[in-house]
């Protein structure tokens, strides 16, 4: 089971959203990381077959997905980043509708819908109109529809947007369980969402694929570049101006502990830290620091 993305590009009028990306996706959870506008959604739409690449080819087990058509869609599940529902549908009706489109029989469909509603904690609202659900609930309905046909290839575009922390944990557990012998690709710009469930990651920037590898391989790229030190709280602004600070933590005695990225330690008392995937992400996307990525505790 293999999904090959072969020299795929997508050119819009004045912008190249995806530039010559090649990637071989094998069973397991893959994280597709990149800042907003990096080209993640465009790449996913091309994998979903709803957008045609300007050049290049996407193939499943060696056969172009366009040629596979219905066969490919039969083993495919997709959660777009933004999507709508029919206003008139209640949750169960909607899932029944999608199940029919996915070719599930009536009995199969009812059983699977019940299972999924339980897994995404929506059983209680299954007779409610989707339009009356909260953003997080709508997102979970979207996740459920993507999983209806037990897809071999599952593409989730920013699946955790709108989910609260508890829901995120439940989603991660659900996905870990589901991903056995399947290709699951999750795009996000929130690194912790995929850090622990994705075995491999691909990071893209401005439509270009920057790095691909397992979590360990990628983390290694940031080794020796992550530091920590404690500074007087009043001087934090000065450090913020000069350093790529990943996180800040207030300590006792008017001091603040900072975790920062740098080639060399900035202060004498800085100690080298074990890198995390998020550190590499912020090294590759420095403009993302300060856009909600930095943690302050």
């Amino acid at each position: 089971m293999e999904l090959q993305i072969d020299h795929v590009s997508k050119q819009f009028k004045d912008k190249k959203a995806v530039n010559n990306i090649s990637l071989k996706l094998t069973p397991g959870v893959w994280g597709l990381l990149g800042a907003n506008g990096a080209g993640k959604t465009t790449l996913m739409r091309m994998i979903a077959g709803i957008m045609q690449p300007t050049s290049g080819n996407i193939a499943y087990d060696g056969v172009p997905i366009k040629k596979l058509g219905e066969q490919y869609r039969n083993i495919f599940g997709y959660l777009p980043q933004e999507f709508g529902f029919y206003q008139e549908f209640i949750v169960r009706d909607y899932l029944e509708y999608i199940a029919a489109l996915k070719g599930l029989s009536g009995r199969q469909s009812r059983r699977r819908i019940h299972e999924l509603l339980e897994q995404v904690s929506l059983l209680e609202v299954c007779n409610k109109k989707i339009s009356r659900l909260s953003g997080g609930m709508k997102r979970r309905v979207g996740i459920a529809q993507a999983l209806l046909n037990n897809p071999e290839v599952l593409i989730l575009d920013e699946p955790t947007g709108g989910l609260d922390p508890g829901e995120r944990v439940r989603f991660r557990n659900l996905l870990s369980e589901f991903a056995q012998n399947r290709i699951v690709l999750i795009s996000t710009h929130i690194v912790p969402d995929v850090e622990y469930i994705a075995a491999c990651h691909a990071m893209i920037k401005d439509g270009n694929l920057l790095v691909v590898g397992t979590t360990e391989e990628l983390v290694r790229l940031a080794e020796g570049k992550v530091w920590s030190c404690t500074v007087p709280t009043g001087t934090v602004q000065k450090y913020e101006d000069k350093l790529q600070i990943v996180s800040l933590r207030n300590e006792d005695g008017g001091r603040t502990s900072i975790r920062y990225l740098a080639e060399r330690p900035y202060t004498a008392d800085s100690v080298s830290m074990a890198p995390r995937l998020e550190d590499l992400y912020l090294l590759l996307f420095p403009q993302n620091i300060g856009e909600g990525s930095r943690r302050h505790s």
């Binding site: 739409r45 979903a48 077959g49 709803i50 219905e70 869609r73 039969n74 495919f76 599940g77 997709y78 959660l79 777009p80 933004e82 999507f83 709508g84 529902f85 029919y86 999608i98 029919a100 489109l101 996915k102 070719g103 979207g142 529809q145 993507a146 046909n149």
Partner: peptide, 11 residues
């Protein structure tokens, strides 16, 4: 945007 989901299904 519901079309994105619908046209990715088998039928």
């Amino acid at each position: 945007g519901s079309d994105d989901i619908l046209r990715c299904t088998k039928y």
